[in-house]
Each structure stands twice: as structure tokens, then as C-alpha cells.
């Protein structure tokens, strides 16, 4: 069942990218179908389609999460850019541990990737429930330890 879903998804993607030629040439269309089948075969050999599948309800939460994340990225970018440009280089790198309260793997990935995507903090390692974070400044460390991002990422599970 998962593989049928994956097959439809990859073929839709293929049509999106090279569809305008394929509609007039049956040979190109056949090649697309063949390549999709080959990819599905490779993926089934690798056994990397996970059990969680596609979570439709996540899309609703992403609409709220992505604008907030973009705003956080913009703020952090301006802060880090200022620090790089100032001649004294006012940085204070440090390692902090952040608790990730997410249950599902997907939300943990979203949380860790959001930490890394925000300049000033990079997630280095996963250690049980904790995420080891390298922060460039004290403010960035405080920001990620305040748990605001963690709450928003956890809220997406429902």
C-alpha cells in the first residue's frame, strides 16, 4: 500500500518536471514510467519507506509553523550578520542541551532541522530525548532553551 502511494507520488513529480514533452511522445512517457518503477524497486530493496507514512493533518499545522519559522530565521540572520560585520566579533560560542518533547520521528526531524536552519544555533547530536546544540551567542542559546520552538514543534503532532 505504501509503495503504491510512493509510486503515484514519484510519477506525479516526474510529470510536473518533464510533463510538457511527454504528452506528445509516447517513448518519453514510457521511459518515465520505467524510471518510476525502477526507483520504487530500489526503494523497496533499501527498505527505507517508514511506517509513519504521510500525515495529512501535519499540513494544517505547517501553515502556522512555517511563517513563524521564517520570521525566526530572518531575526536570527540579521543578528548573526551584525555580529560578523562588527570589527570586535562579539561572539560567545557555547554548547547547550535542549529537551525535545516530540514523540514521532518526523516532528523530531522538523524540530532539529529548524534549530539548524536558524543561524546562530546548530544541532550537533541526538542523545536520547535531548538535542545537543552549538550556539554562537548567549542570546541564541537562551532563545532555543526557552522552549518556544519545542512547544510549536510538539503542537504539530495533534
Amino acid at each position: 500500500m505504501r509503495y503504491i502511494f510512493f509510486c503515484i507520488f514519484s510519477f506525479t513529480l516526474w510529470m510536473l518536471w518533464s510533463g510538457q514533452y511527454a504528452l506528445h511522445h509516447p517513448l518519453v512517457l514510457a521511459m518515465g514510467v520505467l524510471s518510476c518503477g525502477f526507483v520504487v524497486y530500489l526503494v523497496s530493496r533499501l527498505d527505507i519507506v517508514d511506517e509513519e507514512g504521510i500525515q495529512i493533518h501535519l499540513a494544517r499545522h505547517l501553515f502556522l509553523y512555517i511563517p513563524w519559522l521564517l520570521w525566526a530565521i530572518i531575526k536570527a540572520n540579521i543578528d548573526v550578520a551584525k555580529r560578523i560585520l562588527s570589527p570586535k566579533l562579539p561572539i560567545a560560542p557555547r554548547i547547550v542541551r535542549v529537551r525535545g518533547t516530540q514523540k514521532t520521528d518526523l516532528c523530531r526531524v522538523i524540530f532539529a532541522n529548524s534549530i539548524t536552519l536558524t543561524p546562530g544555533t546548530v544541532s550537533l547530536d541526538l542523545d536520547g530525548e535531548d538535542i545537543v546544540v552549538h550556539a554562537l551567542t548567549e542570546e541564541a542559546a537562551d532563545d532555543v532553551q526557552s522552549g518556544d520552538m519545542d512547544r510549536r514543534a510538539t503542537a504539530m503532532e495533534r
Binding site: 540572520n77 548573526v80 560578523i84 536552519l117 536558524t118 543561524p119 546562530g120 546548530v122 552549538h134 554562537l136
Partner: peptide, 12 residues
């Protein structure tokens, strides 16, 4: 480890 942040600016 600080240079990772410099790369992060250009990437995001």
C-alpha cells in the same frame, strides 16, 4: 563549529 553558522546564513 562557529563557521557552521557562517555557512548557515548563506544557506538559509
Amino acid at each position: 563549529y562557529s563557521r557552521l553558522h557562517g555557512g548557515g546564513i548563506t544557506d538559509s
